[in-house]
Amino acid sequence: MFGLIQALRNKGVLAINRRNAEYTLKHNPRALYPLVDDKLLTKQLALANGIAVPELYWVVEVEGQVRDLPRVLGDRSDFVLKPAHGSGGEGILVIAGKANDKYRKTDGLLLTQEELNHHIFNVLSGLYSLGGQPDKVLVEYRVVFDPIFESISYQGVPDIRIIVFLGIPIMSMVRLPTRMSDGKANLHQGAIGAGIDMRSGRTLTAVWKNDFVTEHPDTGNPVTGVRIPNWDSLLTLAARCYEFATLGYMGVDIVLDRNRGPLILELNARPGLNIQIANNCGLLPRLQLAERYHADLPTVAKRVEFAREHFAAGTC
């Protein structure tokens, strides 16, 4: 057992106690949490700072408003329902189309208006919000994902998670939905996580349910060595989020839309640690390096350059 502890230490693996004590508690002031915990607020702030986000159609705040939903949606048949205070991807409902009066989920299941309303009521009463306080429902643009991921994801929207520490992108991975994850891009729900080389934007190792994989379990296509387009602009986008959110340690979730390019989905003040497994690399050495040099990196461009130079694959 002590051998194992030593091995993890040597690799610089960051575990939950240390993440909380030395990173989130130290660098993320509690007062800033509402910015990221309320997705509506995040969206408004991002827009104000010229950062692209999925278009917001409507916000449901009280039960009575559901009556207006069909009118607001008009002839849009695909959209996403999202709790403003949700966490871990819970409570998100993706509607891909309509069939008669029913809504079709991405997995093909049909929902009646009543079932959809029930979901909205659940969200409003705080079922998915942190601490169970009453919540709002965001109705927003459904991302049409870039064809690059078409062959390696099963329904849903693959997203790219970048850990940003003091404005410097540290580590990243792409999360690919599988049949098991029900089209959701969360690792604990069964999505694949593939680490990304910070220099080239190519996918490295991939993990699925704590095992290393090289192919997507549902489509059979290779998940490693996939080159993510516009990698530099993605890193820049992530680094710019620090400018308005000012959280020292955060996770930035980005989607690649076919038409609109990279969009910020949400920010996370307590990003998960599985990204280390996906990259087969510990976070600590990179975090310590960033902490040492961040004062010398005043601009976004410099920070991105620093990341591409120091956090390339093979540096851990």
Partner: peptide, 17 residues
């Protein structure tokens, strides 16, 4: 203020060792 590994972390990150 304990910031070391939890026992369960060892299982979780075993692949990284």
């Amino acid at each position: 203020r304990y910031s070391g590994y939890r026992l369960m972390d060892l299982f979780r990150f075993k692949a990284l060792s």
